[in-house]
Design a protein around this nucleic acid. Structure first.
Lengths: 138, 138
DNA sequence: GTTCTTGCAAAATATTTGCAAGACG
DNA sequence: CGTCTTGCAAATATTTTGCAAGAAC
């Protein structure tokens, strides 16, 4: 699906900022932060526009915002395998990247009496594949 | 265990700010944010001191920092049932509280080849017990 | 043409750092 | 008393808001 189609499907106007953000994120295999997206984007946008675009895209569940400790804010496409499955995000302590682990996913667990789960975020911290290899190579 | 003992066990100086923060959080059944902690504290501390205290206590795994969307930052005691078990935090969309769901916990899942998990955060969003009851009562 | 989005300026909020004074052990 | 912590000031960074001009449909 193209960025254009995604926007149309959500009844969002097709602006170059939104389209660009979606395309950049679709082309990446890791989650990106604001600066990384800005660098990869052809146009130059105001920071305010960025914030508003992220907000809009997030509200329509097109993007997923991932916050690590605090202040590491990254965005990824929201491609959940099924409505009741939530995939984990992996944060590498070494290279600081965030990747979607599509193969690692969870169902909503049984909650205590009275609680209703509507969404779930799982962040796993550790060492990623490529950092493990780099370490072994030494 | 008292706040004093916790600090001593971590070789941290016993200051009234640290001790107060730990006591306030121990006495609460929900996670608290900076302002809520400040209100419940007898002394009056500079915001910088707060940030540094949270940082120190977090680094020693005494507190757990929970970030919800972004900018909802709450703290809770770090009482994990076992070193390889991670309990979920529950964020109520209605009353905006964060609670530790001690009974809902996860083990580190099987990760893709090359990935090593060292920690895990699970945040479940939904409606909590007391908000469900309020709703039914209407 | 109407409605939504952008860019700019400015405000509000959050976080970090340096440094001298003070508290802890 | 030596070391770590605090409070203050100031710098840095993040996020939000109002508003007029511009783009999308």
């Amino acid at each position: 699906m193209t960025a254009e189609e995604i926007l149309a499907r959500h009844n969002l106007k097709r602006t170059s900022c939104r389209e660009g953000i979606i395309e950049v994120i679709m082309a990446s295999d890791v989650a990106l932060d604001e600066n990384e997206i800005k660098e990869k984007l052809s146009g130059n946008y105001d920071r305010t526009t960025f914030y508003r675009s992220f907000k809009t895209l997030g509200e329509h569940d097109i993007l997923h915002k991932i916050v690590i400790d605090n202040y590491i804010v990254k965005y990824a496409l929201n491609n959940s395998p099924a409505p009741d499955r939530y995939h984990a995000h992996f944060y590498c302590n070494k290279c600081k990247t965030v990747q979607c682990l599509d193969s690692v996913n969870f169902m909503m667990p049984e909650l205590p009496e009275g609680y209703t789960g509507e969404g779930m975020d799982v962040i796993i911290r550790g060492t990623c594949d490529s950092c493990t290899k780099k370490q072994e190579g030494k």
